[in-house]
């Protein structure tokens, strides 16, 4: 599906990615995690041809993406940028309709396929009831569903999303992730998302990519790669990884960082990895690495 070869990318003077080789599995939900400024958004933007790499290539189904007309890429690859600008006064149906742009020309502005795709996308993202509302009057969760509907209207096999859950409350985060999960499972779409929450990544991802300082530290199914060591290497945070009581996926619980946060009169060994926690008391490891 999507892969990169020796990718070098960055902004102005700063090189963020330096020679990255990456293979994203098709028909999977891939989640990219990593600390702030580790290059995960840069990677996503470069793969989505929003950012031109300085060197190296992004391959879409084996073809260099820069050799493909951007309209054709837009029919195969949908992108949701991190915080898209909401146009003032545009209605939901109108904005979702913009997703049909790659199929339109100024002399062929609308077709039955466009109508059907917009209806389908709005139903999938559950925004049909909002069709006539201006997007700038919606709540954050509703807006995000509208943006996702716009990319769905593009009818692409793959979807790239840059932090689609940021600024949403927990219920709306779950809602968005469930939608992406359904796209993968029910529609067989390839979904790639940058997420901040490791536990959500562990629950939803088929394939997890952990990045640090512009390089991939580990990649694979979360149940295989998400360990306390990985979290320490990637985020510089000491933690305990336990099975999630609901799904059994790895659940990352940060270690004790201050003695005053210790449970009051708690039995000494409540957590299974208590020994990993003790040495941390009184220090702040995330600053060190």
């Amino acid at each position: 599906m999507l892969s990169t070869r020796d990718l070098v990318a960055g902004y102005d003077e700063r090189t963020v990615l330096d020679g990255l080789d990456l293979e994203l599995p098709a028909d999977a939900f891939t989640v990219i995690v990593g600390p702030n400024a580790c290059g995960k958004s840069t990677l996503l933007r470069t793969m989505a041809r929003l950012l031109t790499p300085r060197r190296g290539t992004v391959l879409l189904d084996g073809t260099a993406i820069r050799d493909l007309p951007t309209r054709e890429v837009a029919r195969r690859l949908g992108v949701l940028p991190q915080s898209p600008l909401v146009p003032e006064g545009v209605t939901v149906a109108d904005l979702v309709g913009r997703g049909r742009q790659p199929y339109q020309r100024w002399w062929r502005q609308w077709s039955e396929q466009d109508s059907a795709a917009v209806d389908r996308a709005m139903a999938m993202a559950d925004v049909v009831g909002l069709a006539d509302r201006p997007v700038d009057t919606l709540s954050g969760g509703q807006r995000q569903r509208v943006w996702i509907a716009m990319t769905l209207a593009q009818d692409t096999d793959a979807l790239l999303l840059d932090e689609p859950t940021t600024f949403l409350d927990l219920a709306h985060q779950v809602e968005v992730l469930d939608l992406l999960h359904r796209l993968r499972v029910e529609r067989g779409r390839t979904v790639v998302a940058v997420l901040h929450d490791l536990n959500q990544a562990a629950r939803y991802a088929d394939h997890l990519i952990a990045m640090r300082a512009g390089a991939v530290v580990a990649a694979g199914p979360p149940r295989e790669i998400l360990t306390a060591e990985l979290v320490r290497d990637v985020f510089g945070l000491h933690c305990v990884v336990v099975p999630c009581p609901v799904t059994g996926a790895p659940l990352v619980v940060p270690g004790l960082t201050s003695p005053s946060l210790a449970p009051p009169a708690a039995p000494a060994a409540r957590t299974p990895a208590d020994d990993a926690v003790t040495p941390l008391v009184g220090s702040h490891p995330s600053k060190g690495i």
């Binding site: 929003l50 890429v73 837009a74 940028p81 742009q101 990319t151």
Partner: peptide, 15 residues
């Protein structure tokens, strides 16, 4: 029609 979209969103839909 598309001038109200930001550049990343516009590129994403093939403009």
């Amino acid at each position: 029609n598309s001038t109200a979209l930001d550049d990343d969103t516009a590129r994403g839909i093939g403009l």
